[in-house]
């Protein structure tokens, strides 16, 4: 096992990658109380080893459902998810998830250190190795000094950094992120986006990043998958041909960024008006977390 932080980047942009994660004809229907809601309809895509793929879609597009299915937290009604050649039937040990609700995904009765260390204890890792991984991970997210604080003593952005450090220390092959920055302020968000890019570069981890923010998806991703409204299908699989070195100022003001952004925006507008088939049986989504 290589050190998560010091691992050399093996990335060669543009080089073809073997598929690590395969999502094949996944469909998810919720049933209960006499009605059924088809949240996800027939999604097929694959993510290559070491890729950073963003999934963007309008509110209520079943993004969270999809992510939970991939994470093995929800069973699809039909279809399969394959990770590294093995079918996902429960949460796979080589996958880590970062949720949007940082306030609810960290254990409030544990310190920052305890939170990061807990999954490693589950992996039956030696004490010294755990301490090393925890220290490196916290350093990597810029929280080396906060290890003995409790999560609720930190700001929202710092709490999400802790959740990211926990995921990093876990040394996953695939990092799933479910709108991780939807609830933090704009400046913090920009910092965290850059943190994700730099972690991705340094660790060579595969990242699947779900967001409803079009700019964020274009800025972060190598590829952007545009989802339709629920019941969800993939409207477009878009390669982001921005330079690999990105920064908030230049990248976001580049003409190509504007074009890509414009394109994705159009697709989302289309998605809102052209739902993936028959009308939804459930009530309209009660507001959006924008």
């Amino acid at each position: 096992m290589s050190d998560p932080v010091a691992a050399p980047s093996t990335r060669q942009p543009g080089q073809p990658r073997t598929a690590l994660l395969d999502v094949d004809r996944v469909q998810k229907t919720y049933t209960g109380q006499g009605r059924t809601v088809e949240a996800v309809r027939n999604l097929t895509f694959s993510v290559g080893d070491g890729e950073l793929v963003c999934i963007v879609g309008p509110s209520g597009a079943g993004k969270t459902t999809l992510l939970k299915v991939i994470a093995g937290l929800l069973e699809p009604t039909s279809g399969t998810v394959t990770l590294d050649g093995t079918a996902v039937t429960g949460p796979p040990p080589s996958m880590a998830v970062v949720f949007q609700e940082y306030g609810r995904s960290l254990f409030p009765w544990m310190t920052v250190e305890g939170n990061v260390e807990l999954p490693l204890k589950q992996k039956k890792m030696g004490k010294e190795r755990r301490a090393e991984l925890v220290r490196d991970a916290l350093e990597a997210v810029g929280l080396a000094d906060a290890h003995s604080a409790y999560p609720w003593q930190l700001s929202g952005g710092m709490q999400q950094r802790v959740a990211i450090a926990r995921a990093v220390a876990y040394q996953p092959k695939v990092l799933l992120m479910d709108e991780p920055f939807a609830a933090v302020d704009a400046q913090t968000r920009a910092d965290l986006e850059d943190l994700i890019r730099s972690l991705w570069h340094r660790l060579g981890v595969t990242i699947l990043f779900v967001t409803h923010d079009i700019d964020e998806s274009v800025y972060l991703g190598e590829r952007v998958l545009v989802l339709s409204s629920s019941p969800t299908v993939i409207m477009e699989d878009l390669a982001i041909d921005l330079p690999d070195e990105r920064n908030q100022l230049d990248t976001r003001s580049s003409p190509r960024f504007a074009e890509l952004r414009h394109h994705v925006y159009e697709q989302i507008q289309l998605a809102k008006h052209r739902r993936g088939g028959e009308p939804v049986t459930g009530p309209a989504p009660a507001g959006s977390p924008t």
Partner: peptide, 20 residues
């Protein structure tokens, strides 16, 4: 509680009220 602690609105479970 801050708004960030409210369950995500676009999870179908919460939206359709299928989970009590």
């Amino acid at each position: 509680m801050t708004t960030t602690d409210v369950p995500a609105l676009d999870t179908p479970d919460a939206r359709a009220g299928l989970v009590p």
